[in-house]
Amino acid sequence: MTAQLLTFYLFSGVILISSLMVISTKNPVHSVLFLILSFLNAAGLFVILHAEFLAMILIIVYVGAVAVLFLFVVMMLDFKTSINKDNILQYIPIGILIGIVFIAELIIVLINTKFDLSNIQVLPNPLSDFTGKSNTEAIGSVLYTDYILYFQLSGVILLVAMIGSIVLTLREREGVKRQVVSEQLQRQGKIDLVDVKSGKGVDV
C-alpha cells in the first residue's frame, strides 16, 4: 500500500462520511459545513490525480464563493423548526426510486462504453498534444482556443441570467437618502480652509 493509495482512501472516506452527515444532521448549518468538508476532500482527490488547477478552482469557486453565500443564507434561517424523525420515512420510496434510476444509468453507460483511449483522435475537434504542458496551459488552450464559442456562449447565458435576476428583484424605494460621493467632492464655496494661528483664534 503506497502513500498515494492511503491518501486516496483517506480523502474518499471523509467524502463518504461527510456526505452522509450532510443529509443526516438535523442542524442545517452543520449540513453546510459538512458539505464544505466534502468539497475540500474532493479537491484533495483532484490533487492526487495531478489535476491541481481543477482542485484550486474547485476550492475557489465552490468553497470560497458559492458555499459562503449558501452558509450565509442558511445561517439566517430559523432552524429550530427542524423536521421530525417520522417525517423522514415518507421520502424513502421516492429516494429509492431516484437511486434505482441513477444505478441503471450508470450500468447502461458502463456496458455501452469501451474505454478506448486511441479513439480520442476521432473527436470532431481532436485534442492537440499536451506533452510537456502544465495542466493549466492544457485546460486554457482547450477552453479558450478550441472551444471558444461554447465558452463565450455560456458566459453570455450567465450574464443574461444575472441581469434577469437583478431586474426581477429590483425595487425603486422612495425617500431613501443616498450619499453621492462625486457631488460631495465637487462642492465649492461652502467650506473655507483657514490656517489658524496658535493663540489668535479665527473669526467665522
Partner: peptide
C-alpha cells in the same frame, strides 16, 4: 514549489472567511 502557487494562496485565503462565519454563528 507548486505550479499553481498563486491559486493555492488565493484559495486558502478565500477559505479564511469560514473561521469568522463559524465563530459568529
Amino acid at each position: 514549489n507548486i505550479n499553481v502557487g498563486i491559486l493555492y494562496i488565493f484559495a486558502i485565503s478565500s477559505l479564511g472567511v469560514y473561521g469568522i462565519l463559524m465563530a459568529g454563528w
